[in-house]
């Protein structure tokens, strides 16, 4: 099948993704933590941005991959695509959690609170809940084919719902309490922009690398299960 072959082909360059991601993140970390200047208002804590923003971006990217993969799976029914979706969800949870935790740590010194009912925070928390629900649904279903289809449906419905959730929460917040804390509009100086960009690209590449490794892991797990059960076809490895 097309998807399996494509993924197998990409897997050959897996290592390069990992190396590129590692290098970019290391340079980004050095520039972000050492050479870039602290923010005029926030001081040193602004350095959390270099990990918070890329993590949030990759989390959203992970969900987008999950959405696209789910559509693809419903279209072609390729089990490898399903493995990829499963992997993307797992990694997505990881990045979402990182974004939430680092955001919370950043909020404490700047806004003097660990948590605010900011629309973006709420949307991210709900995204985390949806992804956790996705993985739970997968573990509770026994029929592998149903598991894949149902999970894909959940991912698609959730993806369509997320912008609606975001807008409704934003609307709700502005109604009750004009956003006193503006989370955007921090003008970013150039010596902050470059490490941020490096970290962002590095995180995207890291996500791609993780996705490949994890897809491979899930695929091999299925294969082993099948082999331990009953395998009539020849397994090509």
């Amino acid at each position: 099948m097309v998807a399996s072959r494509l993924i197998a082909k990409l897997q050959r360059y897996e290592g390069w993704f990992g190396i590129a991601a590692g290098l970019l993140i290391m340079v980004g970390l050095y520039m972000g933590l050492v050479t870039s200047s602290p923010d005029y208002y926030q001081g040193e804590v602004v350095r959390i941005m270099y990990i918070h923003v890329p993590a949030a971006q990759s989390a959203m990217f992970a969900y987008t991959v999950l959405f696209g993969g789910s559509l693809w799976y419903l279209w072609k029914r390729d089990p490898v695509v399903d493995n990829m979706c499963h992997a993307a969800a797992g990694i997505g949870i990881f990045f979402t959690a990182i974004a939430l935790v680092t955001g919370s740590i950043w909020a404490k010194p700047t806004w003097n609170t660990w948590w605010t009912w900011d629309p973006r925070l709420i949307s991210f928390a709900i995204m985390l809940l949806i992804l956790v629900g996705y993985l739970m649904l997968r573990t509770f279903l026994e029929d592998k084919e149903k598991e894949a289809t149902y999970a894909a449906i959940l991912a698609i419905v959730g993806f369509i719902d997320l912008p609606i959730i975001h807008f409704s929460v934003e609307w709700w917040r502005t109604l009750h309490q004009p956003l006193s804390i503006s989370t955007r509009g921090v003008s970013i100086a150039r010596d902050m922009l470059i490490p941020l960009l490096l970290m962002s690209i590095g995180f995207y590449l890291l996500f791609a690398y993780m996705l490949m490794v994890r897809t491979q892991m899930l695929y091999l797990q299925h294969l082993l299960e099948a082999k331990r059960g009953r395998m009539l076809s020849k397994v090509h490895l």
């Binding site: 089990p79 029929d143 592998k144 059960g229 009953r230 076809s233």
Partner: peptide
Amino acid sequence: KSFQHFQVLNR
């Protein structure tokens, strides 16, 4: 027919 990677029927 194979269920995911688990083959039941063969041609």
